[in-house]
């Protein structure tokens, strides 16, 4: 997968984290994270629980600031522009950087179709061809065939794996340049996991993807590059190793990375 590392596409964005430090209240949980997410690349974030992967990924679309007491230092550059700059609107950032959560969270009061179109309704965007948008979004999330006959059923009538793919479709309908995924498969069965992984591979043509995963095989299957996060002895977490997925898994520089990817701890 290394050869695709530098491919370019118009729609996807280049994302970069520079010197990111994060606090919850007085407690610092991330220390000096520097990562580059080139366009159309899939980046896996791995590391033991509690090392700050979710926290980091939430800083990439300014969801972190929704938590009272959130503190931050550093820069997140989206196509070269710092999203934390004064005067930048968090809502604009989130329009370009979509997010899929660990637990499927379809809107319970809406039907499947309404869920896909929820982003448009919520942001007041107009799209002349709703039906087409619903179909393409659901197709891209590889769930179209399963739901095409029941688009008006409540979203909660779907299985957990289908709900998660619906949430992906919901994000895709907004046509984000970057898609963040925080352990999207941790609540799913193997079959659904497989489908989501296929979806990710296809999506990489059109957008930049950052995915947090606990599953080493998954990281190797879907990602081009991998960052290994670690927080030791209650110190703030940080990135121990960052490189192409092949390099991180097969020739890790840091012995701790070696231990982790070979299942010795975490």
């Amino acid at each position: 997968m290394v050869e695709t590392l530098l491919t370019e596409s118009n729609a996807a964005s280049h994302l970069e984290a520079r010197g990111v430090h994060v606090w919850f209240g007085q407690r610092q949980v991330l220390q000096d994270v520097n990562l580059v997410f080139p366009s159309n690349q899939v980046t896996a974030l791995i590391g033991p629980s509690g090392c700050g992967k979710s926290t980091f990924i939430r800083t990439l679309n300014r969801m972190h600031e929704l938590i009272p007491g959130a503190g931050f230092a550093g820069q997140i550059l989206l196509d070269g522009k710092d999203i934390y700059e004064d005067g930048t609107d968090a809502v604009d950032v989130r329009l370009r950087v979509g997010m899929v959560f660990q637990k499927p969270n379809p809107f319970p009061t809406m039907s499947i179709r309404e869920n896909v179109l929820a982003g448009l309704r919520l942001t007041g965007k107009k799209n002349p061809n709703m039906d087409e948008l619903v179909e393409t979004s659901l197709r891209r999330a590889s769930i179209w065939n399963e739901v095409k006959d029941r688009l008006n059923d409540p979203a909660l009538s779907l299985s957990g794996g289908q709900q998660q793919r619906l949430c992906i479709a919901r994000s895709l309908a907004m046509d984000p340049a970057v898609l963040l995924m925080d352990e999207p498969c941790s609540a799913l069965d193997p079959g659904s996991t497989r489908r989501v992984e296929e979806t990710i591979e296809e999506l990489a043509d059109q957008m930049t993807i950052v995915i947090v995963t606990h599953n080493m095989q998954q990281a190797q299957r879907v990602s081009h590059q991998t960052a290994f996060f670690l927080s030791e002895d209650g110190n703030p977490g940080g990135v121990v190793e960052f490189g192409t997925t092949e390099q991180v898994f097969n020739q890790p520089v840091d012995p701790r990375t070696n231990d982790y990817v070979n299942g010795h701890f975490g």
Binding site: R94, F101, K103, L122, T123
Partner: peptide, 27 residues
């Protein structure tokens, strides 16, 4: 109303009032 739902709406780029009116309030 689960925080996840609010976050889901906000992550789509929704303004807070829309997230309230169309997601939180109905729930």
């Amino acid at each position: 109303v689960p925080v996840d739902l609010r976050n889901g709406a906000l992550a789509l780029g929704s303004p807070t009032w829309q997230a309230f009116a169309k997601v939180v309030f109905p729930a």
